[in-house]
């Protein structure tokens, strides 16, 4: 008679696998792992890699939702694997796929090169509005000025918002919510004077104008960055600039 006290709780994980050297296309593989109530999906994946199939590939690092590495589709929703718990996904099976809207490199690893290029393209650094030398002291900022852009500075580049955005799915050249959040982190910073340098990034059809205000990017963001706010307030900025640019004192650089 099996000893009830030794019986393990198990859960099934259905994972989309893809090995470019041997597979024509992705296909699901199934794993059953023992779990405890404190285990995250990431720990489930690590259990598989450690004990069942060492070839399973996935990105991870901090295990605490600050590095942005472990984004993936869990039961159809973009989530961080370290921040999603097996106890909330009972009885299973849990469906795990790589992030939507990105090419799959291998298993749960997606291509991030385009996203990195978008981040780099928006001048992601403070271009001082009124440059100061060291001797003149620090750039001062009130709590209210900080509050104006603070949420956008919380972005961990996890790309869940891109996986959630259907317009990015339709148009991979759309600059997208994450890059726009970073852009607004700088445009909204009282110390920054680089708004005009960044205007080309927002004003094209692949800038803010690909966005149709679906808003689910902000819903899935694990850090409450509110990228939808970054994109949509720049529609207002871009629209006014469209008509008022002839009155600009300086040129866009």
């Amino acid at each position: 008679m099996p000893d009830a006290a030794l019986a393990e709780k198990t859960i099934e994980l259905k994972i989309l696998r893809y090995r470019p050297a041997s597979d024509a296309e992705p296909a699901f593989g199934s794993f059953t792992v023992p779990y405890t109530d404190d285990m995250s999906v990431l720990q489930g994946l690590q259990t598989i890699k450690d004990t069942l199939d060492g070839t399973l590939s996935f990105r991870w690092s901090c295990r605490m939702a600050v590095c942005g590495s472990c984004g993936m589709m869990i039961n159809g929703t973009p989530r961080l694997a370290c921040n999603t718990f097996l106890r909330n996904l009972l009885p299973g099976p849990v469906t795990i796929e790589p992030l939507n809207n990105f090419p799959i490199e291998r298993d749960l690893v997606v291509s991030v090169g385009d996203f990195v290029k978008k981040i780099e393209s928006i001048y992601p650094y403070i271009i001082p509005r009124e440059p100061k030398t060291i001797e003149e002291g620090p750039y001062l900022q009130t709590p209210a000025q900080l509050a104006a852009y603070e949420s956008f500075s919380d972005c961990i580049n996890c790309m869940l918002c891109y996986a959630a955005c259907p317009q990015f799915g339709e148009n991979p050249d759309f600059i997208g919510p994450g890059a726009m959040a970073l852009l607004q982190r700088y445009n909204g910073d009282s110390r920054d004077g680089g708004r005009l340098k960044r205007i080309d990034a927002i004003s094209g059809d692949n800038g803010v104008w690909s966005c149709t205000a679906v808003g689910i990017c902000s819903d899935v963001c694990p850090k409450n960055v509110d990228p939808a706010n970054a994109v949509n307030q720049n529609k207002t900025n871009s629209a006014f600039d469209f008509f008022l640019r002839f009155l600009r004192k300086e040129d866009a650089q």
């Binding site: 004003s203 059809d205 529609k235 629209a239 469209f242």
Partner: peptide, 15 residues
């Protein structure tokens, strides 16, 4: 840097 993208005329319709 790639050449900047052409401005969209979407603002007219969006307003």
């Amino acid at each position: 840097r790639a050449a900047p993208e052409k401005r969209s005329i979407s603002p007219i319709f969006w307003l």
